[in-house]
Amino acid sequence: MFASASPDNLKQWKCPDGRFIQNLTGHNAIINCLAVNPEGVLVSGADNGTLHCWDWRTGYNFQRLQAPVQPGSMDSESGIFSMTFDHSGSRLITTEADKTIKIYREDDTATEETHPIHWRPEIIKRRKY
């Protein structure tokens, strides 16, 4: 499978015939980049500095982040141009419009009690891939 980004949503596709699987919606900006790690976390970055974390299998958007702007930069310089995960798959590296490279990591202290997931699927789960 693979994903593609567009101005308003992400699309998942099935190989080898390129069959459309589902839309992942939620960004309110142009999506510039995508990255996925071995655990099935898909992250999308947009022109307005938002990062959305998705579960690859279900399409559930479980976290949204706003990239902080470098001190002295304008808010309009919060766009995310590219991103990738490191070899461990636990750190996300981004290049951004404010001329910075940022590294995001997992919160090791997060638990189900401190960071509950409110599962409200908008997408009907399809057959397994």
Rank of each mutant, 00 (worst) to 15 (best):
Y104A: 08
K99G: 01
L92Q: 09
I123M: 10
A29F: 00
E77S: 14
H118S: 09
P38W: 01
R91M: 13
A67Q: 09
Q12G: 00
L65T: 02
I123T: 12
V69H: 08
N61V: 04
F2K: 06
F20C: 02
W54P: 00
S73F: 11
G72H: 10
R57G: 03
H118I: 14
K128Y: 04
D107I: 04
A97T: 12
P38L: 04
D17C: 07
I124Q: 14
N32D: 00
I93L: 15
T114Q: 05
D8C: 04
N9E: 10
K14C: 02
H87R: 11
I21P: 00
H115T: 04
T50Q: 15
Q63N: 01
L10V: 03
W13Y: 02
N37R: 07
I93C: 08
D17N: 11
G89A: 08
F81R: 10
E113W: 12
Q22K: 12
L34Q: 04
L65N: 04
L65S: 01
V43L: 13
N48M: 14
P38H: 10
M83W: 15
D55C: 07
S6D: 02
D86R: 01
T114V: 05
K128L: 10
W54V: 06
V69D: 00
Y129G: 10
V43H: 13
T109S: 09
S6Q: 02
P38D: 08
K125S: 12
R64T: 12
E77G: 09
D47Q: 12
E96Q: 15
G45T: 11
T25Y: 04
K11W: 14
N23C: 07
G72D: 07
P7M: 00
D108K: 14
A46V: 09
I123L: 13
G18I: 04
H118A: 05
T58F: 07
T109F: 05
P16Y: 04
I124R: 12
C33T: 10
W56N: 03
D75H: 13
I80H: 10
T25Q: 07
I21H: 06
R127E: 15
D8H: 01
A110L: 05
K14P: 00
K128W: 02
F62R: 02
E112V: 13
E113M: 11
W119D: 03
T114Y: 05
W56D: 00
I93F: 15
I30A: 02
G79V: 00
E39F: 07
G45C: 13
R64Y: 02
T114S: 14
R91Y: 13
D86V: 02
D55A: 07
D107F: 08
L42V: 15
F2H: 12
A67T: 08
S88D: 13
R105G: 13
Q70D: 03
E122F: 09
K125Q: 15
E113N: 06
I123D: 00
